[in-house]
């Protein structure tokens, strides 16, 4: 019996969302009186894996197969299923990422487990009941859900778990591999294109997001959003109208039909706060709204607000951010 956490790598390091999943997994293991093992595939350095001891992981199973440096769903499923079997895992923990939720869904079928995605809190384990809390209704509510199969599979919402750092010993790293068939590579990507972040922060992983709407008046003013983001170590985002008219790329669009983010701080400049936009940001911990219209609906959802023209307010914020001790 153990808890198994799948960790994702990016450029050799472990993604922040996976450090959260590891922290979550080791706390579940502690509550169950067992240990937490991690499984990693592909593009991660072994010393980064050993450092998962900090998050309470005692052992890491690592598949270094070069073909799995990119995401190959069926092959990943096979490796994780093998690790789960080897460790007699009762709980599998993933980050609620496009990869984590996909693999978790397939494993729920293959291993006959109960899956909860978008999970926001540690489970309540009470006798035979294993209850998790997950976000529903696009951030407007939470549901408490009993996972009724023997095997529980949890995909943890990003930025909802603190990363623990217990100064513990290094995790031991062991190799694992599964017998992969050609058919496991049927959906292997032909091409993977990563966004240029210029050393900046990826939007889905970001703790701080600076976002612009039509109130920015044109793409030529976006340097203000970018400069403030750079000063704060933030990712940049935009509203749907802005991506629809092509001022910014679609992958920056947050909202109902775009990306859902839940950073610690969301700064919205020149976004009125249509309900579709709020659905993508309403689980942010602190929301700042800058809008020249005092009646903009976004102010109702905000913690801090400035009534003013974004193009005049942003330079002042950049200046103040520059003056902060970093």
């Amino acid at each position: 019996m153990s808890v198994l956490v799948f960790v994702e790598g990016l450029n050799g390091e472990i993604k922040k969302s996976s450090l959260e999943a590891a922290s979550y997994g080791s706390q579940v293991a502690q509550a169950m009186g067992t240990s937490a093992t991690a499984v990693a595939i592909g593009d991660v350095h072994e010393d980064a894996l050993a450092r998962l001891g900090e998050q309470g992981i005692s052992k890491v199973l690592y598949d270094a197969d070069d073909r799995l440096k990119q995401f190959v769903a069926d092959a990943y499923v096979k490796v994780i299923a093998k690790a789960a079997q080897q460790e007699s895992a009762k709980v599998l923990v993933f980050s609620n990422s496009n990869i984590g939720a996909a693999v978790g869904s397939k494993l729920a079928v293959r291993l006959n487990g109960s899956l909860a995605t978008n999970v926001t809190e540690l489970p309540k384990i009470d006798g035979g009941n294993f209850t998790v809390t997950r976000g529903v209704f696009s951030g407007k509510a939470f549901a408490q859900v009993n996972l009724t199969s023997d095997l529980k599979i949890i995909a943890v919402k990003k930025n909802s778990t603190d990363i623990i750092s217990n100064g513990g010993t290094s995790a031991t790293v062991e190799k694992i591999s599964a017998d992969l068939a050609e058919s496991d590579f049927a959906v292997a990507p032909k091409e993977t294109v990563m966004q240029e972040t210029d050393g900046g922060v990826l939007l889905p992983e970001a703790e701080i997001v600076v976002s612009g709407g039509r109130g920015m008046k044109g793409p030529e003013n976006w340097h203000l959003i970018e400069e403030l983001a750079k000063e704060l170590g933030a990712a940049t985002a935009c509203s749907k109208p802005v991506s629809d008219i092509g001022w910014r790329p679609h992958h920056e669009h947050v909202g109902q039909t775009g990306i859902t983010v839940s950073p610690n701080l969301y700064i919205a400049a020149g976004i009125s706060g249509a309900i579709q936009h709020l659905a993508g940001v309403n689980s942010s911990k602190v929301i700042v709204v800058i809008n020249k219209d005092p009646e903009a609906p976004f102010f109702k959802a905000a913690d801090y607000g400035i009534v003013g023209d974004a193009l005049e307010v942003l330079p002042k914020l950049i200046e103040a951010a520059k003056a902060l001790d970093k």
Partner: peptide, 26 residues
């Protein structure tokens, strides 16, 4: 089904927006 929805809750309401004067945005 492999899960049972037991009950629901709503997030805590925000306490309201704190406005800062635009001239003093810093």
């Amino acid at each position: 089904a492999k899960s049972e929805y037991v009950n629901y809750s709503k997030p805590e309401k925000k306490s309201g927006v704190k406005l800062i004067d635009a001239d003093n945005a810093g």
